[in-house]
């Protein structure tokens, strides 16, 4: 499969998973669960909108990466942007829509005569995601440098090494080939 076709397929899958599915899923939630979510103070519509827009951004960047040459600055820019968008996605997902919490989410619900407060601390994964994205960016830069080096090496080799040279009559004279004598003649 060519790189371009691969990127188109990958972008389509990304759009399906990160944009179409999150936009469709809330309509399938049972009303009771929807009421619990809104009671807990979670902005499900805003959360879904954030995920969907990130899906569009990732799909677009996947297409750019598929169509741009690996040695072009556009490819490097798209790779770095893609890693950054992935980090944003992780941050938003682990913080349930409020990325400013950096992975620590507090959900509070008032029940009859009681208050239930749940705190989820996933900040370790936010830090891990930041490290991973930093490694990804370094990898993109190394890949880009490598692609450029390979390209310059390819450009130094002439495409037709014998172009411009003419054969001299003596070059055309091939040595006479004789069968090996057995020594009996």
């Amino acid at each position: 499969m060519s790189r371009r076709l691969q990127s188109v397929v990958s972008a389509a899958i990304t759009l399906l998973i990160f944009t179409a599915l999150p936009l469709y899923a809330p309509s399938q939630l049972p009303p009771e669960l929807e009421s619990i979510i809104s009671h807990a103070g979670l902005d499900i519509t805003g959360f879904v909108a954030q995920i969907a827009s990130i899906g569009v951004a990732i799909a677009a960047l996947t297409l750019v990466k598929g169509f741009a040459a690996k040695h072009s600055p556009l490819y490097l820019l798209a790779s770095v942007a893609s890693s950054t968008v992935t980090l944003t996605f992780t941050l938003i997902t682990l913080s349930l829509g409020d990325w400013g919490n950096l992975g620590v989410t507090t959900i509070s619900m008032d029940l009859q005569g009681a208050t239930n407060t749940v705190v989820l601390d996933l900040s370790a994964f936010v830090k891990l995601a930041a490290v991973t994205v930093a490694l990804e960016v370094i990898h993109s830069i190394l890949e880009f440098a490598d692609a450029r080096k390979q390209r310059s090496e390819t450009q130094q080799l002439p495409e037709r090494p014998f172009e411009g040279t003419t054969l001299q009559p003596e070059d055309q004279m091939l040595p006479e080939i004789r069968p090996l004598s057995s020594g009996r003649d």
């Binding site: 005569g113 009681a114 208050t115 239930n116 407060t117 749940v118 705190v119 370790a124």
Partner: peptide, 20 residues
Amino acid sequence: TLNDMVGASNTMTYRGGGSA
């Protein structure tokens, strides 16, 4: 869990006067 790196807590505050 995970060497104390990941966590969750649940705090239930009972104010009384209700059925909880």
